[in-house]
């Protein structure tokens, strides 16, 4: 019960941090507010009893913060002006969120109660995991033995995305682009 109260307090702080991220004018402060939201999420994972996910959340949050700070530290703090188009799109977004919430309210009743295992498969992992795999960390025994094929799919997804990022960020693309510009100027 105490854990639930702490979870709700952390959720309120996360929502406050997200609102600060959207509303603040300074880009660097917005990035730091995003980091605060991520760290609160990792503390929530700790209270829910998932230290694996908490470690991953903290470390990936630090990496993304470094990249975001490096990307925004040289950018001038340009605040978006509130034009009528933006207000119109905000209203459309709010209407759609309201429709989704109405359908989600009925869907949430079909979910199992908080903290109760929804799948019988997970009980099988907990009972037979130590005998069949020999790993004392059941999360690792699930993701690298029982469900290793899914993890391999995730590794393939990461490999493909990294290859795509390299294809975009490769060094000679800029020089080729300059050659194109030179040809355009000659003609």
């Amino acid at each position: 019960m105490e854990n639930l109260i702490i979870l709700h307090i952390l959720l309120v702080f996360m929502i406050i941090g997200a609102i600060i991220t959207i509303e603040i004018r300074n880009m660097l402060s917005a990035v730091i507010a995003v980091g605060a939201v991520g760290f609160m999420l990792s503390v929530q994972f700790l209270f829910l009893g998932a230290p694996d996910i908490a470690i991953t959340q903290v470390i990936v949050e630090i990496l993304s913060l470094i990249i975001l700070i490096r990307a925004t530290i040289n950018v001038d703090n340009v605040a978006i002006e509130r034009k009528e188009e933006i207000i119109f799109s905000n209203r459309i977004t709010l209407i759609f969120i309201g429709v989704i919430l109405i359908f989600a309210w009925t869907a949430f009743h079909a979910l199992p109660t908080f903290g109760e295992p929804s799948m019988r498969v997970s009980q099988f992992y907990l009972i037979h995991g130590l005998q069949e795999v020999g790993a004392t960390n059941f999360v690792t025994s699930v993701i690298l033995d029982f469900r290793a094929y899914d993890t391999f799919g995730e590794a393939v997804v990461l490999f493909t995305s990294i290859s795509g990022a390299f294809a975009i960020l490769r060094r000679w693309k800029k020089e080729q682009h300059k050659d194109f510009l030179r040809i355009d100027r000659e003609h």
Binding site: P51, D52, I55, T56, L63, A135, T136, N137
Partner: peptide, 21 residues
């Protein structure tokens, strides 16, 4: 120690990448 205590390949890999970064 990913199969004994919490952790594993992904967070450890990101941590090593962070050291180089």
């Amino acid at each position: 120690y990913g199969h004994i205590t919490p952790g594993g390949g992904f967070p450890g890999g990101v941590m090593i990448a962070l050291a180089y970064i």
